[in-house]
Design a protein around this nucleic acid. Structure first.
Lengths: 207, 207
DNA sequence: GCCAATACTGTATATCTAACCAGGCTTCGG
DNA sequence: CCGAAGCCTGGTTAGATATACAGTATTGGC
């Protein structure tokens, strides 16, 4: 989605708020009233811009034919449920909008510590820890971890799930499957960061 | 809320569905289209009746000025969340109150088919299917199952989770762990019933 | 300096929408 | 048998709404 100006973001926020409170999208006139515009064209132009930038969809001819396209919002907004993160684009923050597939309505407090998001796991390297290909790993955001914990780690633009082990300057990322090899990272000259700690698993399809 | 006729309940259901899918309430004309009415008055009268009976609110003069008042709590939308079943008392129905430990706020529609309850799994017999001791198995209530599905089965007052296999009069309950032995049941002279089908897993503690 | 984009005012209009009127058909209780 | 309520057709209209066109002013990049 193209970046929005401050004013455009305000308009988008109003559309969201209006819809959440009243159950219907606003008309041009209602947007004008909220912002003090005296011409419906002011609202119309903002809507067109938002549509062009991909923030909303406009259905021609329909009253209140506005759809907010992306549920957007990262961690801060108190939206119910947890964002599901699929493939993580190289270099982008893990909760960047482009990585969020959808939201699942799951109580974050089920997990302890609290889950911040769900990461869709690819591959079989954690099979013996009961984490299968396609599973959702409930992740608590953290930059530190204790040895033995299952972590979401970022190394050189690759995000992976492994069991964490640290000895001095060396970090070992251990798979839970004898078919895979441990990864060794020298913290002095290789990029490494912990994105979070695995606090649970959700599998929505039986195996 | 006064009781609704069958037709009125259908109209109300459509309003809910329309709003959930499009983000806006329907117009009279859109209701007509959905039901095949040829006059907007048919929709108008239904809306008035629904408003009189307290099911919806109508805001005069506004396009799409319909608000569904109660989230309804009938058969379909009972208590939110899923009941967690722990140890199942001998002979009692699996969802009997005495077996329900608590309720977890999880969207039942995450799973397909829909989950009806969560069963806390004891033991390691399904380890290689990624179902560990202490995990919650999301269960869809069913009395039948296809071979190869993971089922919750009741045999002689014992409830167990295994992979289901049937050949004529014989049912085999297969563990997913070489340390355990398959269970064979002769349907002609041994008690056996399927309680449900496993449709997912939730693990609230990392391993 | 100039063009494009943003951010509005002001006006106009075709059409969408809510809302009303008149009437037909059926069911059900008194 | 009657009246009321549910359920619908057909048609009408005031006003709500989307959308186009003509301007003005400001800002930032080239």
């Amino acid at each position: 989605m193209e970046p929005l100006t401050k004013r455009q973001a305000e308009i988008l926020a109003l559309i969201r708020k209006f819809q959440a409170e009243s159950g219907r999208p606003p008309t041009r006139a209602e947007i004008c009233e909220a912002f003090g515009f005296s011409s419906p064209n002011a609202a119309e132009e903002h809507l067109r811009t938002l549509a062009r930038k991909g923030a909303i969809e406009m259905i021609p001819g329909l009253s209140r034919g506005i759809r907010v396209l992306k549920t957007q919002r990262g961690v801060d907004a108190a939206e119910p449920g947890l964002p599901v993160v699929g493939r993580v684009a190289a270099g982008s923050p893990i909760l960047a909008e482009e990585n969020v597939e959808e939201r699942y309505q799951v109580d974050a407090r089920l997990f302890s510590p609290r889950a911040d998001y769900l990461l869709r796991v690819r591959g079989h390297s954690m099979r013996d820890a009961g984490i299968l290909n396609g599973d959702l790993l409930a992740v608590h955001r953290a930059a530190e971890a204790a040895s033995g914990q299952i972590v979401v780690a970022r190394l050189d633009n690759d995000v992976t799930v492994k069991r964490f082990q640290r000895r001095g300057h060396t970090v070992r990322l251990l798979p839970e499957n004898p078919d895979f090899e441990p990864i060794e990272v020298d913290l002095r000259n290789e990029p490494f960061a912990i994105e979070g700690i695995g606090v649970g698993v959700i599998r929505t399809k039986p195996r």
